[in-house]
Each structure stands twice: as structure tokens, then as C-alpha cells.
Design a protein around this nucleic acid. Structure first.
Lengths: 137, 137
DNA sequence: TTAAGTGTAATAAACACAATTACAGTTTTG
DNA sequence: CAAAACTGTAATTGTGTTTATTACACTTAA
């Protein structure tokens, strides 16, 4: 199983958008089909990004902090996705080898470009747009 | 450590491009700083994609099957990268939940778009271009 | 015929992510 | 004010993926 935090986060926010109110982590977890604690951790990240508000205590839970028209997938991605699109090679170069010493920098540029391409794509999609698509089945 | 097969493969091919000849898996492994068996597995994938040729036996090894000008990063990516750019959620939906039942299809479209964006980026970069960049330091 | 390679299976080690348990702290409500 | 129903968060365990390693049969050049 690979990293699904982005999927989870979008799912959660979509539920919040559809519900238009406070939803607790238990309910969200059932919809996503995961554990409430996993949901709560994502909610913290989303709150830090200013996308939701949370409330502790009885009848607590989470709700959107702004209009779904003003929430893009890029904002969600930035809030929860810890990994770059293309992984960078972290191991140290073989000093005797010309290619080994320079490939890292070059590949960083390539990865950067891929990142930019994906970000541009995600920036063009709003949560509201997702809601519409889901309504149409 | 995340999936580095793409990095490894590009590194290997760059060495082959610079060397312009047969290089054995031992030597490649030292440059990449990994194990010869890992390299050999990647070489098989690259060979299946028609990017290199291999030779068994003494003085054997791998060499490019074509001009670096005609090898793009996308071809390398397709040869070795098993994972999509954005992971798909594989778990089954909660049937009672409207969002849960439809989010998967919607997110598949999003992931597809991201994939296309990255592929377009990678298609625009040749191995030859990488070589040039590395030469310039 | 031997030395030096590849091809490939099998297994172990390392790692990342998700799930789970536990519990302190917060807030509403009766 | 006490109980109920939440969140916040640490700690631990489980699971799957990727990389490393070992081993060895097969191939080929010299």
C-alpha cells in the first residue's frame, strides 16, 4: 500500500463540503474506511493549512473553513503530501565517478519540473468542481 | 527510502552514454552505490524496453542500444517505474456513503491528469540532454 | 578450460505507512 | 457540576514495498 494521505484528505474534505456542517472523526473514518486517529491526524494538517476548523468536546468535529470554490487540490496536496512526485536519490555519490558526482543535481532539476507540472494540474481543480462531478455520478 | 528505480535507471543509462561501450553490472553498481543484482534487474527492464543490449559471459555487460538523442526520460520511466504519480485508493467504499461510492472514479481522473502532465515533462528531456548538463558541471 | 560475466530465485533487512490502543484534555448538555 | 462525547497526541504494532544480499546455473571470450 502506497501513500494515500492525499486521497484520504480529498475524501474527507469532500464529505465536509457535501455535509456543510460539523462531522466527527468517527463518521469521517467510516466513510474513508480507515481509523479515526488516522483521520484526526489528517484533520490537524488540514487545519494547519487553514482549510478546516475543528472543535473539541461534545458535538465536536471538523468543518470547512471556507467556500469549496476557494479550495484547490493543490492546497490539499501541500497540506498533507510529504513526498515529492519523483523521489530524489539520497545516497552519497561515488567520488571517483564523474556521472555519480553530478547526476544528483541534474535529476533534482528533472524532479522539480515534474513537481511543477503536477502542481499546475492540481491548482486547476477546486473542491467545488469535485463535488459537482460526484453529484453527476 | 522511497522508490528509486527511476533514478537508478537514469544514472545507469547516463554512465552507458558517457562511456560509449560495454560496462559490467559491478562497475555500474559502484557508480550508483548499490548492489550488482539490483543493477542487473534494472538492466533487464531497460533491455525489454529496447534501450540497451546486454552480453553474457566474459567481458560482458551492457551498452546503449541507440543514440542518446533518441532516448527520452519518459521511455526510461515507462521501462522501470511501477507506480503511478498519485496513488489510487484501493480500499472498498462504504456503501451507505454517497461520497465514498463515487470519489474513487473522480480521483482516478485527477490522477490520470497528473500522470499525463509528468509524462509530457519527461518526454521532453533526452538522455543526450542530461549528458550535456552533466558535462557542464 | 578457465575466468569473468549475466540471469534469476530465494531470502533477509530496511523502511514507510497505516492501524490500533490508550489516555489526557476540552466542551456541551442535562 | 458531573457525565457524555468529542479532539489531540504519544506509543506501539502490523503490513506491504523496496532494496540488499547470497547463491548458483548458465554463457562467452580468451
Amino acid at each position: 500500500m502506497v501513500n494515500q494521505q492525499f486521497n484520504f484528505a480529498v475524501h474527507i474534505l469532500t464529505v465536509l463540503a457535501v455535509t456543510r456542517g460539523v462531522v466527527d472523526s468517527q463518521t469521517l473514518a467510516r466513510s474513508v474506511n480507515t481509523n479515526p486517529v488516522v483521520v484526526r491526524r489528517l484533520l490537524l494538517a488540514l487545519r494547519a493549512a487553514g482549510l478546516i476548523e475543528t472543535q473539541a468536546g461534545k458535538n465536536g468535529g471538523a468543518k470547512l473553513a471556507r467556500d469549496p470554490r476557494r479550495i484547490t487540490l493543490l492546497q490539499i496536496y501541500d497540506a498533507v503530501e510529504p513526498r515529492p512526485v519523483l523521489a530524489m536519490n539520497e545516497r552519497k555519490a561515488a567520488r571517483h565517478c564523474f556521472v555519480s558526482c553530478n547526476i544528483k543535481t541534474v535529476m533534482a532539476t528533472v524532479a522539480k519540473g515534474a513537481e511543477i507540472a503536477v502542481r499546475k494540474h492540481l491548482r486547476g481543480i477546486t473542491l467545488h468542481r469535485l463535488q459537482q462531478k460526484i453529484r453527476r455520478g
